[in-house]
Amino acid sequence: MNQNLQALQDAGVSIWLDDLSRQMIRSGELSSYITDKAVTGVTTNPSIFAAAFQDLSQYGAELSQLKADSVDVEEAIRRLTSRDVAEACRLFTDAYATSAGYDGRVSIEVAPTLAMDTAATIEQAAALHELVGEPNVLIKIPATQAGIPAIRATVAAGISVNVTLIFSIDRYHEVMDAYIAGLEDALAAGRDISTIHSVASFFVSRVDSEIDKRLNDIGTPAALALRGRSAVANARLAFKAYEEVFGSARFTALAAKGANVQRPLWASTSVKNPDYDDTMYVAQLVARPTVNTMPANTLAAFADHGIVSGDTITPNLDDAAQVLDEVQAQGIDLAEVCDKLEHEGVDKFVVSWTGLVEGVTVALARA
């Protein structure tokens, strides 16, 4: 086991890989991530699958059969992605069992085109959960305004959820409330809430990318000194919110009946600015219990030279608040930034989904 990654895991951070393909599963590459790099879960997105489905050596036979059966493109996507996710889930059976369900998780996302449709999101979340058919699957639902009631309803149905595309602390509070309300609904319906798990995916690097652009435009020494600090500060304050909500009397009452916390997950952790330390969104966001989902290059960088120096979140909460106060003092509206990033995030997801649909359409034609 890589020592740097083992140290990160020992510090309370679950390491999940932000990548998946059938070739990775069947070649043994994913298994090697599990045994050698402390990876205990996987997250996916349409862009990842769009690239994977072009490999006809892996998908050709199934694509040919789907074509022969006159299956439409979106149904073909659901079947192919769910099969890969199910196969990956089975590789994580041990991690799932030994962690009592916290880890060993593989995520599959509801079509991004449904991000503003609550009813359709609820329906597809249930369908994907049934289609994958493995207990350690997580259904990804975006934290849009329409997604919030869908999260509650999906959790109430006993389905474990990865809430994605969170940028603001205010929206994060809505996400946590939806999860807890869903648990309360599930309990009232007689469900065993100990089997329900969730993570809340708080996006990191995109916050710096947007705020740094604005700080550069301001251009003063005080503004420039704040570059590369907003994203970590925002995430650290999200962890503070997590501790407050899941330490509340409301959740404590549910925990007594078996409820699990909804762990913060740090997403978008690859560094976009080459001048920054390529492990900063990992090393500076260490606390128990969190998840960090990394693309392969970030994982490799941390394995090579990442440093774990204990909890880097809770001792720095005052500094985090000060950083964001100073950013706002520069005239930057954090609420507006987060709202912009959420809308852009949905748009990017839809673009990725469109690319996936186009890619599978081409692959079906070639099959």
Rank of each mutant, 00 (worst) to 15 (best):
A241N: 08
E210N: 09
D72V: 03
Q322H: 13
I148E: 03
A38S: 09
S47P: 01
G190D: 09
I151C: 06
T164M: 08
R227K: 10
I218M: 11
R22V: 07
D212S: 07
W266N: 11
I332D: 03
S99N: 04
C89V: 07
F49S: 14
D18E: 05
S70W: 05
D185Y: 04
L17I: 14
D311H: 13
I122W: 03
A241W: 10
F246K: 01
L341E: 03
L183M: 11
I166R: 12
A283C: 00
L254P: 03
I169Q: 15
G158R: 00
D318E: 10
N2Y: 03
D339Q: 06
R288D: 11
Q23A: 15
E134P: 01
Y242D: 10
V323E: 00
A186C: 08
P112C: 12
V199S: 12
A153F: 01
V261F: 06
A256C: 01
T44W: 01
L237R: 13
A287S: 08
I180G: 02
F202E: 02
C89L: 12
G158H: 06
T252Q: 13
G60Q: 10
G12F: 14
V360R: 02
V337N: 01
Y242I: 02
D275Q: 13
E29N: 14
E342C: 00
G228I: 07
A301H: 00
A303T: 01
V199Y: 04
F302V: 10
R250H: 08
A321G: 08
V308D: 11
L138A: 10
H197E: 02
D103Y: 07
A320H: 10
Q23M: 04
V110F: 08
L215A: 06
V308I: 07
K348C: 00
M24I: 08
L265I: 07
I196H: 12
A52L: 01
A186H: 08
A127M: 10
S270A: 14
I122F: 05
L91D: 03
D10I: 04
R152M: 05
F167D: 13
A189N: 14
F203E: 06
E210S: 06
T144L: 05
L341S: 00
L224E: 12
L187D: 05
S14R: 05
S268Q: 12
A156C: 02
D18W: 13
I25C: 09
R263T: 09
D304W: 00
R79D: 10
F302N: 01
A222I: 04
R105I: 05
D333Q: 06
T44C: 04
V308G: 09
I193P: 06
R171G: 08
I332K: 14
D319K: 11
F302T: 09
Q65E: 13
G359D: 03
E210T: 13
P149R: 06
S82Y: 15
V323L: 05
L299I: 09
G104N: 09
F202T: 04
P135E: 14
G258P: 02
E342W: 00
G306H: 07
T293R: 11
D333R: 00
L324M: 05
V282S: 01
S27Q: 12
P289D: 11
V350T: 05
D19C: 03
K140F: 03
I122S: 02
N260I: 15
I77P: 04
T113Y: 07
R250C: 02
Y102F: 15
T118P: 10
T118W: 02
G345Q: 09
